[in-house]
Nucleic acid binder design. Structure first.
Lengths: 221, 221
DNA sequence: AGGCTAATGTCAGCGTCTGACAATTGACAA
DNA sequence: TTGTCAATTGTCAGACGCTGACATTAGCCT
């Protein structure tokens, strides 16, 4: 067995050391077990000991991989968000700010699988999304994470437009509005009974088209 | 002393029983002590035992007044938010939605004192605001509370305009944008070094005026 | 004055999270 | 191959947030 692994190492230059691979496997296993437990029996009714036991590591080890119980719940979200941000950065420079944001988020939802499927099944990721939206303590963290992402988006938008974030309020405001729309869409999707990613994508697109009209002085009836 | 209090009761019909007054005093004392400790030495570095000890009650009693450590940190915010919502409900019916929100929030910031000064000194309230914005766990809860308030605002706006929240996305979107602006203003105020309420009020007003321009397709430079 | 009930204190215990130290196990060179 | 070094893990003790159960105190009302 030792020989086999040594050979495997030779034939796969990128995977680096054995130690590192073991760590990745432990981490993935913790995420999968945690999300499975969270979605099956609820976040609060799942203890860290349960998660650790499922992967056969000590509770102390769990806390060496994740700073707290919340962090493991957002592991797949983290990947998805990175994916989205990368999509924004790849947008053509001549696109208007809101159009770029819109394109990036729709792209990201469309190719969510590629970003997370090595860690968890996409379907588990979506079920976890619902758990987050319906668990008060997780929802709070979720909103803070969104706020942090908005900070990064603001800077990217300002960069694209060649503006200074500290003097021009428009990048901050546009992103704040955009973030609001994303949240509204996510919340409505959670409340509905359609599970698919496409549905969430459609809800998002639909609402983004209503940003302008919602600001009008007098609303048509 | 017993006689004096009995007389005092007679001359003040509303204050109700002695028991109730004692409860109110204990609650106020807990809030004041907690906020003082939080602002002086930080939220995380303050234990519930410290707060309870400062008021000379048991830790168990603290948790009979507040569901958790976070709740006491938002006691004065709670009052302020109620005040703001009441201001919105008192707005003339012919005002446009965004104008009503704008008027309500500026009014509320203008008369913040009256809403909270029996509980804590307004200056302590403002210092606590900064602590909330700069403490990750509190910021998360703050954002969730804002989201809950937005839900109420959405329904009130829809009511004013005679719309159905479930079919028309505009109330949700307007409020989401409005909430974003409030957050941006609050954050900028926290980052600055001006302590006064007026400053926060001005920042808020300024940003509300930029909602329209930020949505424009092409931004002027 | 005395009984009723609400408020408080005490105690035990669960769950999250951390520091400290010892044991294990990959990595790498002699 | 073997031995050393460093990274990973386990174990243990303990702080802190929070809760249920039960005893005690203190306002209320006849």
């Amino acid at each position: 067995m030792t020989t086999d692994e040594a050979v495997a190492d030779m034939t796969t230059p990128p995977p680096a050391g054995l130690r590192e691979r073991k760590k990745q496997r432990t981490r993935s296993a913790l995420v999968r077990s945690a999300l499975e437990l969270f979605t099956r029996q609820g976040y609060e009714r799942t203890t860290v000991d349960e998660i650790a036991e499922a992967v056969e590591v000590s509770q102390r080890t769990f806390f060496r991989y994740f700073a707290n119980k919340e962090e493991v719940a957002f592991a797949s979200q983290e990947s998805a968000e990175c994916h989205f941000f990368a999509a924004l950065c790849g947008r053509p420079a001549d696109e208007a700010p809101l159009a770029a944001l819109r394109g990036a988020v729709l792209d990201a939802w469309g190719s969510i699988g590629e970003a997370i499927e090595q860690m968890v099944p996409p379907e588990l990721h979506m079920r976890m999304y619902r758990v987050i939206e319906s668990t008060p303590s997780l929802l709070a963290v979720h909103l803070r994470r969104i706020a942090e992402m908005e900070e990064r988006l603001t800077r990217e938008i300002a960069r694209r437009e060649g503006l200074d974030v500290d003097t021009d309020p428009r990048p901050r405001l546009l992103v704040a509005m955009f973030g609001g729309v994303i949240r509204v869409a996510g919340k409505l999707w959670t409340e509905g009974d359609e599970d698919s990613v496409v549905t969430l994508r459609d809800i998002t697109a639909f609402h983004l088209d209503y940003v302008g009209p919602a600001l009008a002085e007098k609303w048509d009836k």
